[in-house]
Every structure is written in structure tokens, then in C-alpha cells.
Design a protein around this nucleic acid. Structure first.
Lengths: 142, 142
DNA sequence: AGAAAATAGTTTGATATCAAACTAAAATGG
DNA sequence: CCATTTTAGTTTGATATCAAACTATTTTCT
């Protein structure tokens, strides 16, 4: 099969948008509103490391530090995280999960499973492995 | 291999962002600046149909009509397209390529080849077909 | 010790994106 | 024929995104 570049890139774009909409929609079902996937990336990063600097978050989620400022401030407003300035190096700001933020963990896990089940419906283990292997090659190529 | 949902979705997101950056960067190399991939989608649509309504463009590129208004206005400012109101149904606005817009065709084709060559480096025809087949399944699932 | 450079994070400005509301025109139905 | 509904596109407001510039602090170098 011979196909246009744009087909694959376009296909990947469409899948990504559909997946993002799916995730946002599932969040809403669990009563978690106003959160988009970038917020989710931050919270997931904090599940793994309960206390991160703004710079660490930016690095982990692949967003500009100015973007992270805006995203984190929104999560603060929603009560999911707190910001605190380091007392030793007052340039540094730490972000930590609140108890409300921690409560999102089972919800995020459930949504992950739902996305996984939907996305991988009728796709064999072989195909999954093949997909990830090829996508990793492509990721490396770009 | 057992992996997290977010890994695949995240991988797809990263590839899409890298591909978009690659394309924007290539555009700049050809002296085409200020154009992002959504503008490119509009121009590609016009390569196939030299005259489209705003609504048709929105449908073809999968963007909201208000977004298309903003994107098309920018392409007008840059001299790549013109807008003209239908004389029969004055609600309707047609978008057409200018000669300057048409000149982008060989550039877009060249960039497509470059993206293709880079993205598919060291990936066999078999792998390409497998990738597209599985991605289409996923797209359908979501 | 103090100046210069580097760093952390915020602010500013621009842009793409969407949803909702709006304006204006066309279509529909009574 | 006219009122109502529908449609096309624009405008408004909000938000995520980035780059550049900025402020404040720390580190480095002389």
C-alpha cells in the first residue's frame, strides 16, 4: 500500500485528538471538570513524585515553563495541588498534591483502563507490541 | 510487553508534536513562515478543490468554524488565499488559492517527501502497512 | 567582596483552539 | 406573504501553548 505522508501524520493527529476528547469526557463522567490532558500529565507526574519543582514538571510533561505556570495555577485554584517556595533557594517553587489531588488516583487509573480497553479493542498482543515497536522507531527518527 | 495506556497515547502525542515541529521547521527553510500545520491542512484541501466554502474547509480539516475563520483570515493577510462572498447565497464565503498560494504546492510536496523519508527511515514496507492497519483500527475504536 | 553570569519562575504578547452567542441571509411552513 | 426556523460565518470570551522579556535569587568568577 502506498500512501501519503500526511495520511500517517494526519491519522496520528486524529487519534491523539480523539483520545484526548475521550479522556476529558471520561473525567467529566467522574465529576472532574475543567481538567485537560496536560493537567493530567502534571498530576500523573506527582503521583510518581509527590513533590516536584516547576522545572521538573516542565521537563517531565514536555511543556514550556510558562505553560506550566498557567497549568499549575489552575490546579491550585481547583484545589488539587499546592505551591510552596523553597526556603533555601527562594527561586525554586515546589508543587505537591493535596488530599483532593490524591483522590484522583483511582479515577485516573479507571480512566486509563477504559481508554486502554477501548483503544485496544480487538487488537492482539502481537499487534500491540508491533505498534509500540514501530512507533518508537518513528519517534526516534523524528 | 505490558504497558500503560498513557504510554501509547503519550507516544502518539509526542510523535505528533515532533512531526508538527518538523513540518513548521521545514516550511521556514523554504521561506514560508508563520504557517502552522492547520494552515497547511487548509491549503492542501484547496490543492484538491481550488474553491471551497468555510464550512467545507471546517469539515475537511476537522476544526471548528470559528477556528477556520481565524486561520483563513491569516492566510488572506499572507496573500495565499482570497475570500469571496457568494452572490447567490450571501451567507456563503468561498475561499480560493491565489497564485502565491499555488506556488506552495511544490514546497508542500517536497516537505511531504522529507517528512516521509525521515519518519519511515529504516522501516520496511511490511511495517508501514502493519502500522497503518493497526492505527486505523485504533482510530475506529475511539 | 562584589560584579557578572546563570537560573527559576512569572509576566507579556501572540496565536490556535473551542463553545456560545451573535448577525445576516435563506429556507420552510402556515 | 409573512413569521419562524435553519444555516453560514463572525465575534466574543476563555484557555493552552510558546517565545521573549522580565524580576529576583543563586552561583560563579575575578
Amino acid at each position: 500500500m502506498r500512501m501519503n505522508t500526511n495520511d500517517v501524520v494526519s491519522l496520528i493527529s486524529k487519534i491523539r485528538e480523539k483520545a484526548n476528547r475521550f479522556i476529558v469526557s471520561e473525567m467529566t463522567k467522574y465529576g472532574v471538570e475543567g481538567i485537560v490532558t496536560s493537567h493530567g500529565d502534571i498530576i500523573n507526574a506527582l503521583f510518581k513524585n509527590p513533590r516536584l519543582t516547576m522545572a521538573e514538571i516542565a521537563g517531565k510533561i514536555g511543556r514550556d515553563k510558562s505553560t506550566v505556570t498557567t497549568l499549575v495555577d489552575k490546579l491550585v485554584r481547583f484545589g488539587y495541588v499546592t505551591k510552596e517556595r523553597d526556603t533555601v533557594d527562594t527561586r525554586v517553587v515546589y508543587v505537591t498534591l493535596t488530599s483532593k489531588g490524591s483522590e484522583l488516583k483511582p479515577i485516573f487509573n479507571a480512566i486509563s483502563r477504559e481508554v486502554l480497553n477501548t483503544l485496544y479493542f480487538d487488537i492482539s498482543e502481537n499487534e500491540k507490541e508491533e505498534l509500540v515497536r514501530i512507533l518508537n522507531k518513528i519517534h526516534k527518527n523524528l
